[in-house]
């Protein structure tokens, strides 16, 4: 899982290293560190935002080790959806049960339809939809697209994906 954590460090040398050590010791993979040196907190601490990937079972250990070493943990949040894709569907989208199309993505648990714009010119004409899908990771996003493709094939909908270079 990917975690975004706000921590607060004392304004003395060596503090950042102290804060990052527990993450690497517990096999976390550091994604980014943003050091807000210019904004001290009211208590005179320096806010730092760290983003890292780590196994869920190790997260509590990271937090307690940080606190033991005197690092203030102000906020811990999970960044659930990391990957996004936009696709277009063309066909009888509504009449083939649009709710079901969306549910089948949402039910995966690893991907969700987060945006939908629909254009229906006339009742007998095919409609067009723009769908945004978020997923927890690259692999899950690919799986969600394959699922959507099989749903589209079943319902005779044309699916238009972004070019590959856009995906990577």
């Amino acid at each position: 899982m990917r975690v975004s954590m706000d921590i607060e460090l004392k304004d003395v040398p060596g503090q950042l290293l102290l804060a990052l050590n527990p993450i690497s010791e517990l096999k976390g993979n550091l994604i980014s560190v943003v050091h807000h040196h210019e904004n001290h907190t009211p208590r005179g601490l320096i806010p730092v935002q760290v983003v890292f990937d780590i196994k869920q079972e190790n997260l509590d250990a990271v937090i307690s080790r940080l606190e033991e070493s005197g690092v203030e943990v102000a906020r811990v949040g999970e960044e659930r959806f990391l990957e996004h894709i936009a696709v277009i569907l063309i066909g009888h989208i509504v009449h083939t049960d649009i709710q079901d199309t969306i549910d089948r993505i949402d039910r995966t648990g690893y991907a969700e339809v987060v945006d939908l714009s629909l254009s229906m010119p006339r009742i007998e004409n095919p409609s067009s939809a723009y769908l945004k899908i978020d997923a927890v990771g690259k692999k899950e996003l690919k799986d969600a697209i394959s699922l959507l493709k099989s749903v589209a094939a079943e319902k005779d909908l044309l699916i238009i994906e972004p070019i590959e270079t856009e995906l990577t």
Binding site: S117, S119, S128, P162
Partner: peptide, 26 residues
């Protein structure tokens, strides 16, 4: 897959999100 099923609405939806639709060979 060819282009015969592409609707003008799909092109507009794509444009609203910063895309164009092209027949791409890979």
């Amino acid at each position: 897959t060819g282009i015969t099923k592409i609707t003008p609405e799909s092109l507009i939806l794509a444009e609203d999100s910063g895309y164009v639709i092209k027949l791409i060979g890979e």
